[in-house]
């Protein structure tokens, strides 16, 4: 066995060597790590956008008694590398009141579960945390964990057609903020 090398000195030369070794070694790890992290952060570069107006139903197809009617949103979707022309991406509830229509998002503003309309109770019900909402989307249970009522969506009635701007909103907050 050979003798161990003497411990490093404390002179200026050794300090420079130590610093250089640290910096160079650190760079060797950091550069690929940063490149990887930048790619990982890519989703932050893209916004969800405001959605586009879509024809979703005919006014006459909506019950005149104000019962909500669920409509599947079928639209073009680009998911990373896949582009599909017509896929179901979500659903809205349309509530007719005379010649005006209210569109409610089917996603519970609490944790994002799909809210189902229950005609027998004349209310919306979230199966996850048992929130209930009135037909107009407002919270109708004082113990509801949901921070706000169902999200309304922009609607245009163009003659006999109902057009809706479909977009998602952030869950869990009192304010209705479009999902980024």
């Amino acid at each position: 066995m050979s003798n161990p090398p003497p411990p490093p000195g404390t002179d200026r030369r050794s300090f420079l060597k130590e610093t250089a070794a640290g910096v160079i070694g650190g760079c060797c790890v950091l550069i690929p790590a940063v490149i990887g992290i930048v790619a990982w952060l890519d989703p932050l570069e893209h916004d969800a956008g405001n959605g586009s107006l879509l024809k979703v139903a005919l006014l006459d197809a909506l019950p005149k008694d104000g019962s909500p009617r669920r409509v599947t949103i079928i639209m073009e979707k680009t998911d990373a590398w896949t582009r599909q022309h017509a896929v179901p991406i979500g659903a809205v509830y349309l509530v007719r009141n005379g010649d005006t229509v209210t569109a409610l998002h089917s996603m519970c503003p609490h944790a994002g579960c799909f809210v189902d309309y229950q005609p027998a109770r004349r209310s919306f019900f979230c199966p996850c945390h048992e929130s209930t909402f009135a037909v107009d989307g407002s919270i109708n249970d004082p113990h509801s964990p949901s921070p706000r009522g169902l999200d309304t969506l922009e609607v245009e009635v163009r003659g006999s057609e109902v057009w809706v701007r479909f977009q998602n909103f952030r869950t869990g907050s009192r304010k209705k903020v479009p999902a980024a």
Binding site: W40, L41, P43, D79, A80, I89, G112, N168, R170
Partner: peptide, 24 residues
């Protein structure tokens, strides 16, 4: 969605975890 409740960075964190604005 619960992750989105984290103050300040919740929304970004959620986006990073699900890899975008929507699930896919």
């Amino acid at each position: 969605n619960l992750l989105g409740l984290v103050p300040l960075i919740g929304s970004s964190l959620q986006k990073l975890v699900i890899g975008g604005s929507d699930y896919g």
